[in-house]
Every structure is written in C-alpha cells, then in structure tokens.
Amino acid sequence: MRRLRLLTATAGPAVCACALLLLGGAPAYAHTALKNAAPAPGATVGAGTDVVRLTFDNLTSGIAPKIRMIGPDGKDIPVGEPVVTDTTTACAAVSPLPKGVITLTYSLTAGDGDAQTNAYQFEAAEGAKPAGTPAACADLSLPAPQTGGSDTVAGMSRTTATAAVAGTFAVVGGGGLLALRTLRRRRTLERVAGD
C-alpha cells in the first residue's frame, strides 16, 4: 500500500505537467497567422520597392488588414488602402521605400472577432534591385498612397487643419470679447467711483 501511495504521489504531478504542456502548446486556430510576405520579415530589398503583399492563413471575409510602415527616420511611410485578392492575400501600394530598416505593422480582425496587431522589420538597401510587384498583386488596381499632396495642409489632413484654424479663431475671438468686456466694466467702475 505504501508503494502505491508513493507511486501516486510522484506520478500524479508528472501526468498533470505533461497534460498542461500538451494542451498549452496547441495553437490558437481562431487567430489569423501571417504565412508569408513580400518583403518578408528580416529580408533585404531594394530601396524604391513600392508594393507590399501579406499572405495569411485566412482573412475575415470583406475585412482588409490595416498596414502601417515606419521608416528608419521614425516617420510614417505612406501606404495605400490594402486590397484583398482572395481570402488569404492583401496587397498595398506604398511610397517608394527609403534605405534603412523599416517596420511594417499590420492590424486585422481574426475569425473569432479578436483584434490582432503584429509587426516585423526588413531592410531596404541602396544598390539592391527594388522588389518587383508580387504576382498576386500584379493585376490589381491598388489605391495610391496618400503622400501629403493637396489633401494636406502643414502636415495635417485638410479636415484637421480646418478644425485647427476654426478653433484658433474661436479662442482669439473669445479672448478679444472677454478683454473688451473687462475694459468696459473697468471704465464703468471708474465712472461710478468718480461720481
């Protein structure tokens, strides 16, 4: 009986640990994993590359991932609206990539409704040939990236710039009215005090 207790005492925790390891190592199938990309994580491509492709296990129908790219100077690289080619691949036009390490961040909604955000880095090198348009993206009409042309004012979108100007006028106008009112009140008090 003593041997049975000793065996149970040592084997029980070992069985539980193995079960947890096996269950804990199972992938979360509801989430959408990145299968491959062009440019790929850790790859070196030529500066001037202007299209990116992301291929996933499965994209939620009708929902394109959001793609953001940050250049070596820490500034955003303009990215056009991604186009989903099928249930797995998204393509987007980007402004020609500058040389240096670039961070690509993608956000999407997984099949279970959870929002996912992941990022990876690759390098754009001077002298290397720019990556051509990936075959999956070649026949698509990709929206051009917003490069800050006529739709921006002082680095802000036209809507934001208009709101900022209107807010400035409101603050200046309100301050002027308050100063005028204070000045009138002071003159009225001086007149009353002088009488």
Rank of each mutant, 00 (worst) to 15 (best):
R3M: 00
L4C: 02
R5T: 08
L7S: 07
P13Y: 04
P13H: 05
A14F: 05
A14S: 10
A17V: 14
A19N: 07
A19R: 07
G25A: 09
Y29E: 09
Y29L: 15
A33V: 15
A33Y: 06
A38Q: 13
A38R: 07
A40M: 09
A43E: 15
V45T: 06
V45D: 06
V45P: 11
G46A: 02
G46W: 02
A47T: 02
T49N: 03
D50W: 00
L54Y: 06
T55L: 07
N58Q: 12
N58P: 00
I63Y: 13
I63C: 04
K66Y: 07
R68C: 04
P72G: 15
D73N: 13
D73C: 05
G74S: 04
I77K: 10
I77W: 03
G80F: 00
E81M: 14
E81A: 14
E81K: 15
D86V: 04
D86T: 12
D86A: 09
T87H: 03
T88H: 06
T88Q: 14
T89K: 03
T89W: 05
A90H: 02
A90M: 07
A93R: 08
A93S: 11
A93E: 08
G100R: 12
V101H: 01
V101I: 06
T103N: 01
T103G: 01
L104S: 01
T105P: 03
S107D: 10
S107K: 12
L108F: 05
A110F: 05
D112E: 10
D114G: 00
Q121D: 13
F122I: 12
G127V: 09
A128D: 11
P130K: 02
T133A: 10
T133L: 03
A135T: 12
L142V: 04
P143L: 07
T147F: 02
T152M: 14
T152H: 13
V153G: 02
T159D: 05
A161H: 11
T162N: 10
A164H: 14
A164S: 11
V165P: 04
G167E: 06
T168F: 14
F169T: 05
A170M: 13
A179R: 08
L180A: 15
R185T: 10
R185W: 08
R186T: 08
L189Q: 14
E190S: 09
R191W: 05
G194E: 11
G194F: 01
